[in-house]
Amino acid sequence: MKQKHLAAIATYVFLCVVCLFSVFPFYFMIVGSTNQSVDIVKGRLFFGTHLIENFKTLASTVKLGNAFWNSMRNALVNTVASLFVCSLAGYGFQIYRDKGKDTLMGLLLLSMMVPFAALMVPLFRMFSQARLLDTTVGFILPTISTAFLIFFFRQSAESFPMETVQAARVDGLGELGIFFRIFVPIMAPTFAAAAIVTFMAAWNNYLWPLIIMQSQESQTMPLLITGLTAGYTTDYGILMLSVTITTLPTLILFFTQQKRFVEGVLGSVK
């Protein structure tokens, strides 16, 4: 009995250490945004009084609102479009499964192995010819359809009972109707999980917008952050503040959708 107790204590200690480790960087980031640059460099770990001053400096040196809105718009459009295209495909690959589609799926999975660095120059050439630089469409196109998301939806659809599909057909519902009116509502957690993953990836995307977003008006948050570190002198106070601001949306999304995220992933790993 005593041994069991000890094991339980050990478990909690272990969990606390892990949690401390995962939370501390956040604390550091938030504290940093309230301090002056000089103090952050010196390693100050307590809340300071420079939050408002940092914010004012940040707002006056960069187009914060503009970059935030660009990131938000790009990430939202990307998420909606990706979910639409990939859920249809994932559903299609599973529900209408045959040899041809399995082969195609295998082929599409190969795309996960392609390093982005290799695609950069050819993609840029295509996009500049198509006049898609500085546009949201240009931002989302390369990530609109990803093998990972298709695969994720296909795995989830595996648990979707075929009988339901048959029954719906007997009831006279069309194929698209089955997808939108039965599959989508039932699979809401899967969609939520996919939305979180896609939104985060789009929100944090760095390399691609770096190349195609050429004007100041289309700058996104990650580009804004690296811009702050490019000078002869870096103001770490406003850097930490902008890192905090950039993390907020994904953090909120994560906190509010966490349960659904787990449920959604649950459906796909059965």
């Binding site: 299609g92 690959f93 195609l104 599409l108 290799a118």
Partner: peptide, 30 residues
């Protein structure tokens, strides 16, 4: 039904072919 199946998967597949495999081929030529 089979036709629908292909309709479901083709948009996603096209995107990957055009935006992933095609530039990959040009990268290979490069």
């Amino acid at each position: 039904i089979n036709l629908y199946g292909w309709l479901f998967v083709i948009p996603a597949a096209l995107f990957i072919f055009i935006l992933n495999f095609y530039p990959m081929v040009s990268a290979f030529l490069l």
